[in-house]
Nucleic acid binder design. Structure first.
Lengths: 343, 343
DNA sequence: ATACAAACTGATTGCGCTAACATTTCCTTG
DNA sequence: CAAGGAAATGTTAGCGCAATCAGTTTGTAT
C-alpha cells in the first residue's frame, strides 16, 4: 500500500515514469524490464514485447544517470579540444562522434582553449562525470593534470601530437618534423628569406622551432618571426603579412594555419605581388578551402579525420575490455606537404 | 566494524575515495563534506579548510553521477547542432560553451546531421541523461520529437530559425526573409540572371524559396538552381559554379554558404572572369575568411555568436528558476547584407 | 516419469550522493 | 546569565537503476 511504486509518493521523486512503473504495467519484475531494454537477448520474445508496450504506454524514458551509478558505466566519452572554431579540430570532433555514437556512446565536449590552466580545470569537472573514456588534445600537460589522468584509471587517447611517454594511448604527428620538412622543402625550391607567422600556442611554436632547426641544419636561409593571437583568422594573417612585407624583403611566408595563409594571400594580391614568383605562401592543415583558393594554396596536409577515427577506435577497443590496463601504444599518422600553386 | 566507510568492502564499489572517506579523514559528517564542497557559504571557515585538506589527502574526485541522481540536477546542457564542420555552428558551440562553462554547466554535444530521423534518435539518448537544459538547432521537428520535448519538462531553446509556435524559447532569424532581402538587394543593383547554389538542407531551401519569392514579387529576374550535398565545401562550389557558367549566361551567383561562394570565386578567377563586373557572387554566413578574400566576398552576416550567447543566457535564466514553466518567447536576431567587392 | 541442464525471471541490495529535517553550538541582548 | 535566535553540523532516507545470486520454468535425454 505504501510501496514506492505508486506515483507521487516521495517528495524527492521527479514525477516521470520509472522502471518500476513500467514493470507494474507489464506485470513483471523491474529487473526484467531492465534486461528487456539493455540485454534483450536474455529475455523471452513475449516478455520483450510486453515490456515494449508498457514502455510506450507509460512514456518511460530511461534514466541513465541512475543506470550509470548502479553499473559504474556512464557510456560517456569526454572529448577535450582547444576549440571547435578551427576546422581541423572540428573535423576531429565530427569524426570521433561519428564513430562513437553508433556504439551507444555520447560525447561530453570540453574546450580547453590553448592554456594548461583551462585544461586542468576542465579535466577536473570532466572526471567527476566518470566518463568511460577520454580523448585529449595534446601531450604537454601540467603535473597535476598528468597525475589526475594517471590515477583516474580511464582509457585515454592523447591526440594531435607525439610524445615519448604517452599516459596511455596516442595518435598524432610530430610538429617539429612538420617544421623541419617544410624548411627543407622550401629551401630545395630555392627560397631563402622567410617570414613566419605562427599562432601563440605551444604546438605552433614547436613547428616554428622545427622550421628554424631545418634552416640551421641546412646552414641556409633567414627568417622573421611574428606571433598572432588565437583564434587565427584571415585578418590576423593579412595584417601580419602586411607588416612583414612592409619591413622586410621576403621570398616566402610560412603560416601556422591555412586561414592565416589565405590572409597573407589576400594581402599579396591586393599589393599586386605575383604569387608564388615574387612571394611564396605556405599554409598548414589543408582545410577544405585550401585546395580551391586562387591560386590554390600550398600547405601541409593533416588528416584530422584519420586521427579522430583511430583515436575513437582505440578507445572503443579498450572500453570493451573488462579490465583496465594501460596500453602505452603510440601511432604517428604523419603529414604530407601539398605543393599547390603558392610555392 | 562492518560499516561501509571501510575501503574495499563492497564488491560493487569503484575503489576510489568517496565522500564518506573524506568525511572520516576530516572528522566530520558526510553531509558536511558535501556542503563544504558545494555550498561553502554554509560551512565555517575552519571545517572548510579541514575538508579541503582531507580532499587533497584522499585524492577525492566528486562523483557527479551520484550527485545528479540524488539532487535531480545534472548540471548538464545538451547542445544539438547539425554539424560542427560548418563554421557558423562551430561558432554557436563555442559561444554557448563559453557562457555555460563558467556557470558550472557542462555540455553534452549531439550532431543531428541534417535529418529529422537522426535528431529523433539523438534526442532520445540525450533525454535519458536528464540534462538541465537543451539547445536545439532548428524548429521543424518530427511529431515524436516535438512530443518528447514537450513532455520532458526541460528548459529548451530552439535556435537558428524562426517559428510561429516555438516549443519553449527561440533565438533565430528568418531564412525566407534572408532570401527575399538578397533578391531585392541584387535586383536593385541591376543583376537579373541568377545562379543559385544551395546545400540540400531544409533551411537552405527556405532561403532559396525566399529568393525566388523576392524575384516573383518584383516581377523581374531569372534563376537557375543547383543543389549540392552536405557538408558544403569549396570544391562543391567550384564544380557547381563551373557547371552553371558552362551552361548559362549569368550576372550573379548566390550561394547558401560562404565556402561555396569562395569556390565559385576561385572558378571565376581561373576563367579570368572579372568579379563583380562580369559575375557577381554572394555568400551566406560571413565566415571569418569572407571579409579577407580577394576580392572581398559580399555575403549575409549571421551573428552566430549572438545567437549562442542569447540562447545560453535564456537557458541560464530559466535553469536558475526553481519551478519549471514554459516561456514561449521568441527573439529574432536578424541578419545583415554585407556589400563587399563581389557584388 | 525422472534427472539434469539451460533458459528465463525475480528479490535483495547498494552505487555515492544530497534533500529534508533534527540537533547542537554559538552569539546576541536585555 | 537566561532566553532566544541564528549559524553550523548531524541523521535519516531515499534518488532510479543494475549486479548478484536465488529461484522457477522449460526443454531434453534417459
Amino acid at each position: 500500500m505504501d510501496d514506492n511504486s505508486t506515483r507521487g509518493r516521495s517528495s524527492r521523486s521527479t514525477g516521470s515514469a520509472r522502471l518500476t512503473d513500467v514493470a507494474r504495467v507489464a506485470g513483471v519484475a523491474p529487473m526484467t524490464v531492465s534486461r528487456a531494454l539493455n540485454r534483450p537477448e536474455l529475455v523471452s520474445e513475449s516478455t520483450r514485447l510486453r515490456v515494449q508496450r508498457a514502455v510506450l504506454e507509460t512514456g518511460y524514458v530511461p534514466n541513465r544517470v541512475a543506470g550509470a551509478l548502479a553499473s559504474s558505466r556512464s557510456r560517456l566519452v569526454a572529448l577535450l579540444v582547444p576549440t571547435v572554431a578551427h576546422s581541423l579540430f572540428a573535423e576531429v570532433v565530427q569524426t570521433v562522434m561519428g564513430v562513437l555514437a553508433p556504439q551507444g556512446y555520447q560525447v561530453l565536449l570540453g574546450l580547453t582553449g590553448y592554456t594548461p590552466e583551462q585544461e586542468e580545470t576542465i579535466l577536473e569537472t570532466v572526471l567527476s562525470r566518470r566518463p568511460d573514456g577520454i580523448v585529449l588534445t595534446g601531450c604537454r600537460h601540467s603535473a597535476l593534470t598528468r597525475q589526475r589522468l594517471l590515477s583516474a584509471k580511464v582509457p585515454l587517447v592523447e591526440i594531435w601530437d607525439m610524445s615519448d611517454d604517452p599516459v596511455d594511448m596516442l595518435v598524432g604527428f610530430s610538429h617539429e618534423a612538420v617544421g623541419r620538412a617544410v624548411a627543407e622543402h622550401l629551401l630545395a625550391r630555392g627560397y631563402r628569406r622567410f617570414g613566419l607567422i605562427s599562432a601563440d600556442d605551444s604546438r605552433g611554436r614547436r613547428r616554428v622551432a622545427g622550421f628554424i632547426g631545418g634552416l640551421e641544419g641546412a646552414g641556409e636561409g633567414t627568417y622573421q618571426l611574428r606571433e598572432v593571437g588565437t583564434p587565427s583568422s584571415m585578418p590576423w594573417g593579412r595584417g601580419m603579412g602586411a607588416e612583414l612585407l612592409d619591413s622586410h624583403s621576403l621570398d616566402a611566408i610560412v603560416c601556422s594555419s591555412d586561414i592565416l595563409a589565405l590572409g597573407v594571400l589576400a594581402e599579396a594580391q591586393s599589393r599586386g605581388l605575383a604569387v608564388p614568383d615574387r612571394l611564396a605562401i605556405m599554409g598548414f592543415g589543408d582545410s577544405s578551402y585550401a585546395g580551391a583558393s586562387f591560386p590554390a594554396l600550398s600547405t601541409v596536409r593533416i588528416d584530422g579525420a584519420a586521427i579522430g577515427l583511430r583515436a575513437a577506435e582505440h578507445l572503443l577497443q579498450r572500453m570493451a575490455q573488462p579490465t583496465f590496463e594501460r596500453a602505452g601504444q603510440s601511432q604517428d599518422v604523419g603529414f604530407e606537404i601539398i605543393d599547390r600553386d603558392t610555392t
